[in-house]
Design a protein around this nucleic acid. Structure first.
Lengths: 186, 186
DNA sequence: AGAGTGATGAGACTTGGTCCCATCACCGTA
DNA sequence: TACGGTGATGGGACCAAGTCTCATCACTCT
């Protein structure tokens, strides 16, 4: 038997998302989140550097993206290498069982400027990670950033659709569709 | 003679930038900023909604961008309409006498994650404003967002170079150069 | 002279976030 | 069985950001 109730970070995430939905992000206190999870403020900040980060746990995305780009066929064009990475991430992170949670999280973030701000920063980080990974493939500077920007747009569009319960739950499919549309529009 | 020392917001901005350079953003207190400007904490928050915003004053950019896009020749392609707007903004906001201030501000922002976060959010706002302005010109959804993303990249590159004291001080020139590079890379 | 106006000052208050120290449950070893 | 080590937690002091309310003060207008 465990010493303490296990999965403290997960419990905090669930408690936070519940409370944010109920009364809004800014009307929810870190102490309240911790209490609902059966923990304390101290423990909350031991698991998350700040209140916003409870919805942005795990900075594994950048690494996954970089790996996915590095692992794309050598013949793939920059934007196709990005799409390859996005597809890999879809199998890893954007799975069907996380879709409902993702949709709730999305709605909460959209409703609060402080959370949108954090999301914007994360997005910049992902874009930079894509550009760097492309440069490691030999794509020169302006082209790498162009492909990263378009890749970020593809990811955003695919994520929007995948989160929407009215759409399908296959992230890879959404990526390929968004990629085609972006290519056609460029 | 004025009732109070005039230009309180400007004095706060200058005091803040000085202090951020001297001891760093997070080692500077709002009270210290206000005191250096001969004011108080109350007055600081009367002029700026929060501590970060003192470096992001005036949300006029989005409006200027939208106007510039709306005012572009009807025959201009989406990305060229964006470039037209960037050029207009350069004459308005990125003038030669603001260049040194801009470079200092840039360095301070780059050194602090909290400020980078705010900048990321502002960037998203500008990108969204560009996309909306393009849609008002009749550019359909995926194409508008593609052009806005590339326009944001052009703006970023031009701004980087214009801020660099080793480069020229003509923002419009930097825009045109960045535009050519981005077009060639796409 | 006196009332109105608008920017400022002062201070209480809440909350996010940091820090330090005590506690507690388990584990390994004797 | 006893004992010290370890790692997650609890508790509380503390600081700074941000909000709010009320007082003040200098100038303007009548």
């Amino acid at each position: 038997m465990a010493r303490w109730q296990p999965h403290a970070p997960e419990r905090l995430v669930v408690a936070a998302l519940d409370l944010f939905e109920e009364r809004g992000y800014e009307n929810t206190t870190v102490i309240e989140i911790a209490e609902r999870a059966g923990l304390t403020k101290s423990t909350f900040f031991r698991h998350f550097p700040d209140k916003r980060e409870v919805l942005f746990g795990g900075d594994t995305m950048a690494g996954l993206l970089a790996d996915g780009i590095a692992g794309a066929p050598a013949t793939a064009a920059p934007l196709d290498a990005v799409a390859h990475a996005l597809d890999a991430i879809g199998r890893e992170a954007f799975t069907a069982e996380r879709r409902e949670f993702s949709a709730r999280r999305r709605a909460v973030i959209a409703a609060n400027p402080e959370l949108r701000e954090r999301e914007a920063l994360k997005g910049l980080g992902l874009t930079a990670a894509m550009a760097e990974a492309l440069e490691r493939r030999g794509v020169p500077d302006p082209a790498s950033r162009v492909a990263a920007q378009l890749g970020a747009l593809v990811m955003t569009i695919a994520y929007e659709r995948w989160s929407d319960p009215a759409c399908g739950d296959d992230f890879g499919k959404a990526v390929r569709q968004a990629l085609d549309e972006v290519k056609a529009a460029g």
